[in-house]
Computed example of a mutant assay.
Amino acid sequence: MQRNDGLTPEESKIMDNLANAWNMFLKLEQTHPSEQDDFSDGIHKCQQVLMNRILRRDYPKGYPTYRK
């Protein structure tokens, strides 16, 4: 199935793995009141990095790519 979200195939795999990591984490016994929020924040930060890649590809004038 082809996605229509702007991600490359490689990025799509990463995004799917992030979703899988979240789903797997939810199955664990909670050992601290804030761990789910903390884990969710980390997942969202990673997803934001992937979304920024789409912006840089689609709108390079506003969101330039910087290379080392």
Results as ranks from 00 to 15, higher is better:
M1N: 04
Q2I: 06
Q2A: 10
N4M: 05
N4F: 08
D5E: 01
G6R: 09
G6V: 11
L7T: 01
L7S: 02
T8Y: 05
T8N: 08
P9H: 01
P9V: 04
E10K: 03
E10D: 13
E10S: 09
E10W: 07
I14R: 00
I14C: 03
I14T: 10
A19Y: 10
N20I: 09
N20L: 12
A21V: 02
A21N: 02
M24L: 01
M24T: 05
M24P: 03
M24Q: 01
F25Y: 12
F25A: 03
F25M: 00
K27G: 09
K27H: 00
L28N: 12
E29G: 07
E29V: 06
Q30A: 00
P33W: 02
P33V: 01
S34F: 05
E35R: 13
Q36G: 09
D38G: 02
D38L: 13
S40L: 15
S40F: 15
D41R: 08
G42L: 07
G42Q: 14
H44T: 08
K45F: 13
C46V: 11
C46D: 15
C46R: 13
C46H: 09
Q47W: 02
Q48H: 15
Q48S: 14
Q48T: 13
Q48L: 12
V49S: 11
L50A: 11
M51L: 14
N52T: 09
N52V: 04
I54Q: 04
I54M: 04
R56D: 12
R56A: 01
R57L: 04
R57E: 11
R57D: 13
R57F: 07
R57C: 10
D58E: 15
Y59A: 02
P60A: 09
G62I: 00
Y63L: 07
Y63Q: 01
Y63S: 02
P64K: 02
R67M: 05
K68H: 04
